[in-house]
Design a protein around this nucleic acid. Sequence first.
RNA 1: UGGGAUGUAGCCAAGUUGGUGAAGGCACCAGACUUUGACUCUGGCAUUCGUAGGUUCGAGUCCUGCCAUCCCAGCCA
Length: 561
Amino acid sequence: MDETSKVSNFIQDIIEEDLRTGKVNKVHTRFPPEPNGYLHIGHAKAICIDFGMAEKYNGLCNLRFDDTNPTKEDIEYVDSIIEDIKWLGFDWEDRLYYASDYYDQFYDYAVTLVKKGLAYVDDLTAEEIREYRGTLTEPGKDSPYRNRSIEENLDLFERMKNGEFDNGERVLRAKIDMASPNMNMRDPVIYRILKAPHHRTGDKWCIYPMYDFAHPLEDAIENITHSLCSLEFEDHRPLYDWFLEKLEIENPPRQFEFARLNLTYTMMSKRKLRNLVENNIVDSWDDPRMPTLSGLRRRGFTPASIRNFCDLIGVSKTYSVVDYAFLEHCIREDLNKKALRVMAILDPLKVIIDNYPEDLTEEMDVENNPEAPETGTRKVPFSRELYIERDDFQENPPKKYFRLKPGAEVRLKNAYIVKCESFVKDDDGNIIEVHCTYDPESRGGSAPDGRKVRGTIQWVSARHAEDAEVRLYDHLFTKENPDDVSEDGDYMENINPDSLIVLKNCKLEPSLKGAKPGEAFQFIRTGYFCVDSKEYKKGNLVFNRTVSLKDTWAKIVKKHS
RNA sequence: UGGGAUGUAGCCAAGUUGGUGAAGGCACCAGACUUUGACUCUGGCAUUCGUAGGUUCGAGUCCUGCCAUCCCAGCCA
């Protein structure tokens, strides 16, 4: 994608070697999601690797839904997965496939195995199969049905297909080695009876292939050259190769495994993410705090930032946990170039310029993005009563506080230099109003006498301000590892109670009134924000904080406290 | 105590057949610049590659032992 892809990784090394030796002529990969949940940032890594490797070496990458378990899968997930991959910017052209497209072929392959004496129908119950399998340190033992005749197996398997048996009554197993130190080779089940309608094949089938059987075959059918998956499938590779060998597949695909993505303060398990939704810890799969692609999208992350992130973290076989700050860096880097700068006050404090005419409004010129001068400028109204950020005034400030303080000057960005003359407190001692005078000679923000004003703050004209709700998001968990829990607790105890802070009384510059979902803004000196798409549909103007700006001052304050 | 894998800075991660300098990024620290305490820029940040030995003129790269961590006993993927 960019200059960083120069850095090599072991998969590139393999592909380059294969291309060099002529082992393969054209790289062909696939991304094979099971449509049983929403895609998350961990899938984005896999997508970037699968599609990225094909792209880099002028090959092809298929999108294939691995839909071999109708009890867990749904069309809803198919749709969301397609939307998310498109959003990331990858294209599979006309190569959208489903494992269910190959059910007839899988069945034939299974029959072939039976005919070769390499598969048999087992009548053991699930419970018995588990007992016969042995343990990690003890070998398993053969099922009493292991040596049925080929004819009987053929007959039984066909009757399984015809629906003559109930769920769980019989399975088809590969005949390999019950004493193998690799559990996956102890006569794995390859077909089970599942009397459940499938979202694509309806009720045509009541037996469904297992992943281990289907995967190498669908890869072979699609002429996949490099079947990339995550580390936990390493133990399955001998089985993957076994099927291809026994079924005499020519130019068989090969499987390579890489480490999946882990992020600090984040969980990737589909099951746990589902729990968050079901327990109303978040309000949906696309809650902006979720690591799902739909959540990140709603939060304001761009496809470019996520792809760049996936590029930068690299590919290896080392178990790793990437710092969330790395993701934040990537989105800041992208948005710094793209986001329009605007002024917004999240926690307003009224400022009155005593020597400014009551009913005057001036239109101040403000640059849209200094990082992209071609975006030009806009007019922002200025008047006697303004709002500034409550943080930007302090009665008794610490040293080196450059913002507004009694008797001192500060620059209102692109407007005037003002001096704090006095302030008003309510009965509880809260500052409710700051009175200033302005220097009429400093229009635009610079003083003709050349005096230096160190602090510059944002402002919004009170009578022109647009009211809006702003949602500040933070990590969903308080611990880097959400599963770092006490004796018999679970990750729920690490939920961050402040992961969402809703601010209802925010004052925005009037140009924000027309903001649309998908537009990125930098609220100057605060952070990057976007319009919440769901609230927008309901007619509400709500901004989500994508990520804050880096805050050196906060660091200094923290260090001295 | 079976099998498979992995161990390079706080984090991610390059290190091709062993050969003077242990890439790069994030984070962090120091400084410059600044009408965003942002951005940008400059400098710093592993005498050492899990560990103990061995081979070698020379090892992160080869050999041996040990240690640590992860994965596997679904009719899930």
